[in-house]
């Protein structure tokens, strides 16, 4: 027995594939000038050593290390995240590029002996009782790749610890991930404790068993369906969007 599968299913990913390869598209997006071009290429390829080498050369030629972060490293990473958002490259490419970019940032900070003004801080955690943290790892990496400072509390984080971290760090946003229906209940408690303390920050919640209906049931909750929503949400907050507008944008169902 055999079939003609074209009558049964459609491989939309093959059908919709861009004519250009990711490498060709990236090359067209790389800046023309140096050192931005070499750094962007090295970030796209996830080559830490090449990133550092290009930065070294630029600093030897008189570039300001802190200016290189904003002018060279971040725009280089943005090419990668833009290509990911367009569905051109895969997450592992973003992760490897982010590793390379973060190493470059550390190198610039060490060389300058100072740090640039942070774009904003996000506290990330996995719900108490839940040890499934790969989703949180992806969220944290994508936020860092977009230039946000991430305070990663890890997994199985007690509610008290989340509240203490928010009070200490004054983040622009809190994220919580959970795989299990029983552990996501902690999100509600965090919401209530934050409100009791008079803290009204967006609390992005997502992961395995978490759904929009549940997250929408508490005031600060914004449902993040995909990890890639995290940097978009942080950017929307930077652009001045409040809780109601965030819910409007990210509650798609």
């Amino acid at each position: 027995m055999d079939i003609d599968p074209t009558k049964i299913l459609v491989r939309y990913n093959v059908q919709k594939e861009k004519a250009q390869s990711p490498e060709q598209m990236a090359t067209e997006m790389f800046p023309k000038a140096e050192p931005a071009r070499s750094v962007a290429k090295a970030i796209f390829e996830g080559e830490e050593d090449d990133v550092i080498e290009a930065l070294e050369k630029a600093i030897e030629n008189g570039a300001n290390p802190i200016a290189l972060i904003d002018d060279v490293l971040m725009p280089g990473m943005k090419i990668v995240t833009d290509l990911y958002d367009q569905g051109v490259i895969f997450l592992p490419n973003v992760m490897m590029a982010a590793d390379a970019m973060l190493e470059g940032i550390e190198y610039c900070k060490e060389t300058a002996g100072t740090s640039p003004k942070p774009k904003g801080t996000v506290v990330c955690h996995v719900a108490e009782g839940d040890v499934h943290d790969i989703g949180k790892t992806i969220v944290a990496a994508l936020l860092r790749a977009a230039g946000f400072t991430v305070v990663d509390l890890g997994r199985d984080v007690p509610v008290d610890e989340v509240i203490a971290a928010v009070k200490k760090e004054s983040p622009m946003m809190l994220t919580g991930t959970a795989l299990m229906t029983t552990t996501m209940y902690a999100f509600k408690e965090i919401n209530d404790r934050l409100l009791e303390a008079g803290i009204k920050i967006p609390f992005q919640c997502g992961g395995g068993a978490v759904n929009q209906d549940f997250v929408a049931s508490y005031e600060l909750g914004i449902y993040g369906e995909e990890a890639a929503d995290a940097p978009k949400m942080a950017s929307a907050i930077l652009a001045g969007k409040g809780l109601a507008q965030l819910k409007d944008q990210f509650h798609k169902h």
Binding site: R11, Y12, Y84, I138
Partner: peptide, 16 residues
């Protein structure tokens, strides 16, 4: 299953 879920649907770009 972690790999399968990250890979997701046909149009997802998280894992080949």
């Amino acid at each position: 299953n972690t790999a399968m879920f990250i890979a997701g649907g046909l149009l997802d770009k998280n894992l080949a």
